[in-house]
Amino acid sequence: MDSSHSTKESGDIPIRMTDSKSSKAVSPPVPIKKTAKKTLVSRWKRCLGVFDFILRICAIAAALAAATAMATTSQQLPFFTQFFQFKADYDDLPAFTFFVIANAMAGAYLVLSLPFSIVCIVRPHIIGARLMLLIFDTIAVALVTAGASAAASIVYLAHNGNSDANWVAICRQFDDFCQRVSGAVVASFITALIFVVLVAVTAVALRRK
């Protein structure tokens, strides 16, 4: 009797050998579209980081210029009497002193924030550094705006006076003094505006996905 015929009659089931390599699960490939999107977001955040760094450099220049211009403002009129000397200094007014302190602190903070801004460029997806910058930038906006607003009110009185309070406009005599303090106030408001843009840029970088 044939051997193949006996195998069928015995009821044995033939076993088919399969290749072990083909039985392994093959991992699905990473979608190209998702990878391209992630790369695009990284480039976008890196560009925002570079823009943030440039804005901080500009804000440092504006804040330190405002503080320096106000702190070095002094004018003495050429005429004086035996008992009176007509001189104007920034520290004669507390609002101007607060202005110098606020802008100096903002400038110092901006210098210290530069390394964190560089970290955001190198690692565009980082969250902790950006969140910290967002918090301190918001505080700096309030500080610089308060100092600039307080100084602006004094500059307005110096230029226009107040007849109801019998305050004369001293800028008619102290013209150099008023020009310097006015320029310092403008530079401080520019600093505050840059801080607002920095807050917006950081917020966009945190929300971008």
Rank of each mutant, 00 (worst) to 15 (best):
D89V: 07
C171F: 02
S153M: 10
M1R: 13
N103P: 00
K33A: 15
I126W: 12
I118T: 08
A152T: 04
P115W: 07
A151G: 06
C120G: 09
L114S: 01
I13T: 14
A106C: 07
V196H: 04
S6H: 15
V181K: 00
I190T: 10
S74N: 06
F96V: 00
A108Y: 02
A36Y: 09
S23H: 08
A95N: 06
T73C: 03
L93V: 12
F96R: 01
V141H: 04
F86C: 03
V50H: 05
T68R: 07
D137V: 02
V50P: 03
V100I: 06
D2Y: 11
R123K: 15
V26G: 07
A165N: 11
A200S: 07
A152C: 05
K87Q: 13
D2S: 13
V201R: 08
V181W: 00
T145Y: 09
Y156T: 10
A146I: 03
A129M: 13
V41T: 12
I154E: 03
P28I: 11
N160F: 11
K8T: 13
D137M: 03
S74A: 05
C178P: 02
L64R: 02
T73I: 02
V141N: 05
A95L: 04
D176M: 04
L112R: 08
P31S: 15
V50S: 08
S149D: 09
D175S: 09
R208G: 13
S4C: 12
F189R: 01
S23V: 09
K34H: 13
S153P: 04
L110Q: 13
S188A: 14
T73E: 02
A88H: 03
F189S: 00
L131D: 08
V119I: 11
L157A: 08
T18Y: 15
Y109K: 00
D176R: 08
K87M: 03
K8L: 12
L48H: 03
Q76A: 09
R56S: 10
F177W: 11
A69Y: 08
S188I: 02
T18W: 15
V155D: 02
M105C: 11
A150Y: 01
S42P: 05
A36L: 12
